[in-house]
Amino acid sequence: MEDQVVVHHVSNVLEADKWRLYQHSVGFGIPVRDIANWAHDVGAKVIVDAYQSVPHMTIDVHSLNVDFLVASSHKMCGPTGVGFLYGKIDLLSSMLPFLGGGEMISDVFLDHSTWAEPPSRFEAGTPAIGEATGLGAAIDYLSRIGMQTTHDYEVELGRYLYERLLSIPNIRIYGLAPSEKIKRAALCSFNIENIHATDLATFLDQ
């Protein structure tokens, strides 16, 4: 099996994880473009989990140079139970389907079949029509707002959240402090001294 590198774009726990925050064409996160280039240098394919980045910023798969990228609908204001896979067309065209049914077959012969062109060959059976329509509506909605507008506003919210949390005694916030060069996601992972994280989450929930 060909070597694969699987990596998330932005973590919903620590937006930088063990990587430094990295400025590139899509904002911040781990340096996916560099990872893709390194992986390709040794013949590996790159799969990116963009569940936490696609709903919050502009993503250019060509600039990132990734082979595959996945995201889900429900994090984009859409319905549950559906998502999408981006793949480079040459890779998708070389792959065999793993499920059968519906219109994923092009021609049927006595001893073999030929497959439809991507993406149809990977859409066996009746698709999730309602969910896909809802995802399309969610994408239209986010596009009207503008992903850069969304990203800029969330950077502002993230800075405000970080600064307000700092006023709480005995708090430890994970990740680097926001600055002109470092733009955090609109979340903060933290612990408070002598309070178990589960207890704290329960208190905050109530």
Rank of each mutant, 00 (worst) to 15 (best):
Y153C: 07
T150K: 12
E156D: 10
L157Q: 13
G146R: 15
S167D: 15
G136R: 03
V155T: 00
I173W: 10
E131F: 05
G175K: 02
E163F: 00
L142Q: 14
L176I: 13
V155M: 00
L165W: 02
D140M: 07
R144P: 11
E131D: 10
P169K: 14
I171H: 00
E163L: 01
A137K: 09
V155Y: 01
A177G: 10
R172I: 04
G158I: 01
R172L: 03
H151W: 14
A177M: 14
S167Q: 15
L157Y: 05
G175N: 06
G136N: 05
E154H: 07
P178E: 01
Y162E: 04
I139M: 06
L165Y: 02
I173F: 12
Y160N: 04
Y141S: 05
L161S: 01
A137R: 11
G136S: 09
P169Y: 14
Y160L: 05
A132R: 08
D152T: 07
P178R: 06
T133A: 08
I173G: 06
E154A: 04
T133D: 06
T149F: 09
D140F: 09
Q148P: 04
Q148Y: 12
E156P: 02
H151T: 06
L176K: 15
E131N: 11
S167P: 09
P169G: 12
D140R: 07
G146F: 09
Y141Q: 08
Y160Q: 04
N170W: 04
T149I: 13
Y141N: 01
A132I: 13
V155A: 00
